[in-house]
Design a protein around this nucleic acid. Structure first.
Lengths: 201, 201
DNA sequence: CCCTGTGAACCTGTTCACAGCG
DNA sequence: CGCTGTGAACAGGTTCACAGGG
């Protein structure tokens, strides 16, 4: 469920402010959702709240981390070190959520050997070795559209099981591999669309 | 509908390859969807296909552009010129889809006056004037989480009607303003989650 | 025959409303 | 009382299956 991430994010924020308990209504208000929605989502995975009180912030956060798999670190690699790829390598939001880049790859000679964030760019051919070495399950593709499918095929071959795809193309992969498409231009198009076809309230 | 963007993207690809006609089954195959889904989505907006033949690629693309509002250029501003903001300013995928950055804003003195992509960074206080001047409806927020809500409030005040939010926080805005959340860390969490709770087939 | 557009069945996810616990 | 967890009603979106056109 994609909303669990939002709940966790908000809970961590609340924890940092020293809030120890929160109700579904309260949490929903901060997230622009409804109380029933929050309760239903959480109840699906277990009974975390206390009636009459609400949810213990720290405890619920721990549960959500466990469910999302964020209770431990995940090694991630990135392919395609253009402007976007470099920004992603330096983005601090990943590490604070338990994701660590352990490798970056490109095919351009001029980029190989350079370091961005905390990783050095390697030739794409070395990806198999590094994936085995660090037990990498997740990869980020930030190549041009033309290269993305070939890269995805290679990543599948070396045993990656999840791909976050920033390239503006639809990746076709086999069973057992999940693709998370991130369509930047598409997201703006959605806005443009909703902005014109949604008005009035 | 968020899938229209995908259809359009694929149609433009096909057009470039000189393909003039495509069936729902064919298009679905290239996008990992089903033929019925494609037909239903398209039929919602009108009758674009010819039975026994399929859809004229160029014609359908033009219709989708009209529906999505991509048949003309949209001016966009960006707030928060960090690594991610700079990458977005230089990302070519926006312009090719009809979105043009006409302004970039930050509060850091050190960044103001610098140029990235084709725009020069201005002080955030000038945003109102520039929005009026260029009739800007859409904005991108790429600030740290702490600043994002204040920036959103300011953008609402100057009349922006759509915000693409890359900051890891949920923005609360008034009616008449649409927020498109882009949760980068959340997207990786989804993958992590699905990768563990989905396998077998 | 192949393909679209669409009623109808189906399914998934959301909202409502309330029983029951603290 | 306030708040959770959950059946039950509901809504939205997806899939099926087919009539009809080219």
């Amino acid at each position: 469920m994609q909303r669990l991430s939002l709940y966790l994010r908000r809970l961590e924020h609340l924890a940092q402010e020293g809030v120890s308990t929160v109700s579904s209504r309260n949490l929903a208000g901060q997230l622009g959702t409804t109380a029933a929605q929050v309760r239903r989502d959480l109840a699906y995975f277990g009974q975390f709240g206390k009636a009459g009180v609400g949810y213990k912030v720290e405890e619920l956060a721990a549960q959500l981390r466990r469910i999302l798999g964020t209770d431990r670190t995940h090694n991630v690699i990135l392919v395609g070190v253009g402007h976007l790829g470099r920004a992603l390598l330096r983005y601090k939001g990943f590490r604070s959520r338990g994701f660590e880049f352990v490798g970056a790859f490109d095919i351009a000679r001029s980029k190989i050997g350079k370091t961005f964030g905390s990783v050095t760019v390697r030739n794409l051919q070395e990806v198999g070795r590094l994936v085995k070495q660090h037990d990498v399950r997740l990869a980020v593709i930030a190549t041009p559209a033309e290269a993305a499918q070939d890269v995805a095929d290679m990543l599948c071959k070396v045993g990656i099981s999840g791909i976050l795809n920033f390239a503006p193309t639809t990746l076709i992969v086999g069973d057992g591999v999940t693709v998370g498409p991130v369509d930047l231009a598409g997201a703006l198009e959605q806005l443009s669309f909703q902005t014109y076809h949604a008005p009035m309230s």
